[in-house]
């Protein structure tokens, strides 16, 4: 079937328009994060200032001095104001009214006042803990459900599946009470990990994967005298690796984005995960949206980079989970 040239063009137009809708909010946050003044991007009777040129660039203290005097060089700071030079160069071009000077100052402020690196580490630790424990528990539990015959197997499977039916908010309140009164989970890493470790969805997913492995393989290993544990560890785990990757991705994303539970559990800012830390930052800089924007960019860009590197695995992993 031949595709006409205009059809190709119109398809790309659709793709690009949708991409703009997806990307523009991020671009907007980046734009806000480098604004030097509190003046608006859009204004009455003037074009919107949407293109940035280097303005007050540097790190540390002394940005205000550099703004007036052009430079600041000291132990505690390192700034140069490039704005006048670029302003002069841009002046004769028709682009000039659309431009504004960009600064790194908002980023410096955020890193000074908010331990955003710490939030990253906390989020990463909680995520890794949750993913590893989930993979372990689910891959253990799914094996007998798929590959062994024993009394009560079907009942147990239905019981595990039933966890998918009940909405999470139903158990939230008693979970909170138990976490606080019995387990003292408040302000601990394990308090953020353990409640999410066993997942009915994960067990269900891996059970499907185990089914695809031929029984003969296991029987052969058993006749060779392998224990069930070593069969699971040496033969099955390597074979179900794609399924484990899918579960890891699903678990990682939901753990990384988890907000309400850490919000309820954490009071110590040192232990904040990224979403809780972001909400805290939002309150901290409530008057200054440029600093809030800088915080958002710092928090999201690493995730976007990691996603772009592993995008194939992410997308295929999720698609694989749907295909079952």
């Amino acid at each position: 079937m031949r595709v006409k040239r205009w059809q190709v063009a119109s398809r790309y137009t659709v793709l690009i328009v949708v991409m703009l809708v997806t990307a523009l909010p991020f671009v907007w946050a980046m734009l806000m994060s480098v604004r030097q003044t509190s003046a608006n991007v859009f204004g009455r009777n003037r074009p919107p200032e949407v293109f940035a040129y280097p303005g007050l660039m540097g790190w540390g203290e002394g940005a205000d001095t550099a703004e007036d005097e052009g430079r600041y060089r000291a132990e505690d700071g390192w700034w140069t104001n490039y704005a006048p030079r670029f302003e002069r160069a841009l002046e004769p071009t028709p682009l000039a009214p659309y431009t504004f000077p960009a600064t790194t100052e908002n980023y410096y402020r955020v890193t000074q006042d908010i331990a955003i690196g710490r939030y990253f580490v906390n989020s990463l630790l909680v995520c890794l803990g949750t993913v590893l424990l989930t993979l372990l528990l689910c891959s253990l539990a799914a094996y007998p459900l798929a590959k062994m015959r024993f009394a009560g197997r079907d009942v147990l499977f239905v019981v595990i599946l039933s966890t998918l039916v009940f909405p999470e908010q139903l158990i939230l309140i008693p979970l909170y009470v138990t976490a606080v009164n019995t387990f003292q989970f408040q302000d601990t890493y394990h308090g953020l990990i353990l409640p999410f470790a066993a997942s009915g969805l994960g067990i269900f997913l891996l059970r499907q994967v185990y089914y695809s492995i031929p029984d003969e393989l296991l029987e052969a290993a058993r006749i060779d005298g392998a224990t069930e544990f070593s069969i699971w560890w040496r033969i099955l785990l390597p074979l179900i690796r794609p399924g484990l990757a899918t579960l890891a991705i699903i678990t990682f994303v939901s753990s990384w984005n988890n907000f309400l539970w850490p919000l309820l559990m954490l009071t110590d800012t040192e232990l904040f995960t990224l979403p809780v830390g972001l909400a805290y930052l939002r309150g901290f800089f409530s008057g200054n949206i440029r600093n809030v924007a800088a915080g958002i960019v710092i928090a999201t860009v690493p995730v976007i980079v990691v996603f772009m590197i592993f995008q194939k695995q992410f997308i295929e992993g999720l698609a694989g989970a749907v295909k079952g």
């Binding site: 689910c138 007998p144 024993f150 139903l170 158990i171 999410f196 066993a198 069930e228």
Partner: peptide
């Protein structure tokens, strides 16, 4: 195999009991 089956299932069931089924009764 039967003993092994329960052993494999026990950790996940333990977690689900503490963090899901008990709260379900409690709520």
């Amino acid at each position: 195999k039967r003993v092994a089956a329960y052993a494999f299932l026990a950790p996940a069931l333990g977690f689900l009991t503490v963090f899901f089924f008990l709260p379900l009764v409690q709520v």
